[in-house]
């Protein structure tokens, strides 16, 4: 479903992503894990078309991606951002935020779709005409997920979707993502610094360090501690230590 071949990303003179390649099958959830500065979010944002200055090959559902993305791409691929406080327009109500993708893609029946989208992410009807500042962090992230899904995409890019949330809210959002992924047969890429979160949602994952993929593992290998690369082993050891 998603193919990335020798992706290189430059920010000015900085070469931040080196020769990254991976494939994600349809319906699969692929994890990108690493510390800050490892380039994991950059890879995701480049796939989403939010970064210029890349070379290499990328394709989604067999369609090669160019520097500029057309509307059909954005109908197929959607993204959920890390900070639910920053990813919702502060002067727009939930209703307005959710109707924007519908208007852009000319999707009819907005009323019914918005109602259904709110139900799907378990937001109360009363939340529909609220502003983001009137919602809790978890509710905002639900709005962001509803916005990403309202135009029926098949690929969902998740950039640290729970790292700004409390653990109890994180559990709810992770459950919600797992349910939606199953119900809608979504292909996902999940970026996180948290190995436990990655292991919970992903079938396969790539470990990144310094802009390169150092190792690709399955969830089973990760849990069994069958990692080879020292950086991966360090991350696993730390994660176990913090679990206590």
């Amino acid at each position: 479903m998603i193919e990335v071949e020798n992706l290189n990303v430059h920010f000015g003179a900085n070469h931040v992503v080196h020769d990254v390649s991976f494939r994600v099958a349809a319906g699969e959830t692929f994890g990108l894990v690493g510390e800050s500065g490892s380039g994991k979010s950059t890879v995701l944002r480049t796939i989403a078309g939010l970064n210029a200055g890349w070379d290499g090959g990328m394709a989604v559902a067999g369609t090669p991606l160019g520097q500029k993305r057309d509307r059909a791409f954005f109908k197929r691929v959607q993204m959920v951002f890390q900070d639910p406080y920053g990813s919702l327009h502060p002067r727009q109500t939930v209703d307005r935020i959710l109707s924007e993708p519908l208007e852009v893609h000319g999707i009819p029946d907005a009323e019914a779709r918005i109602t259904r989208a709110l139900e799907e992410v378990a937001l109360p009807r009363t939340a529909r005409f609220r502003y983001p500042h009137q919602l809790s962090g978890g509710q905002r992230q639900r709005v962001a997920i509803a916005r990403a899904l309202i135009a029926d995409p098949s690929v969902l890019l998740l950039d640290e979707p729970t790292s700004a949330l409390d653990v109890s809210v994180q559990a709810e959002v992770l459950n919600l993502l797992a349910d939606l992924r199953q119900a809608r047969q979504l292909t996902c890429i999940l970026v996180s610094h948290n190995l436990a979160v990655i292991a919970h949602l992903c079938e396969r994952l790539a470990v990144m360090q310094g802009g390169r993929i150092v190792e690709v593992l399955t969830e089973g290998q990760l849990r069994a501690g069958e990692a080879v690369h020292p950086h991966t082993r360090d991350l696993i050891a730390l994660s176990h230590a913090l679990e206590g």
């Binding site: 944002r45 989403a48 078309g49 939010l50 993305r69 057309d70 509307r71 791409f73 954005f74 109908k75 691929v77 959607q78 993204m79 951002f81 890390q82 900070d83 920053g86 990813s87 919702l88 327009h89 502060p90 924007e100 993708p101 852009v104 893609h105 962001a144 916005r147 990403a148 135009a151």
Partner: peptide, 11 residues
């Protein structure tokens, strides 16, 4: 991010 999110709608 909220403008990035709007860009992601294809507007």
């Amino acid at each position: 991010d909220y403008i990035a999110a709007v860009r992601m709608t294809g507007a």
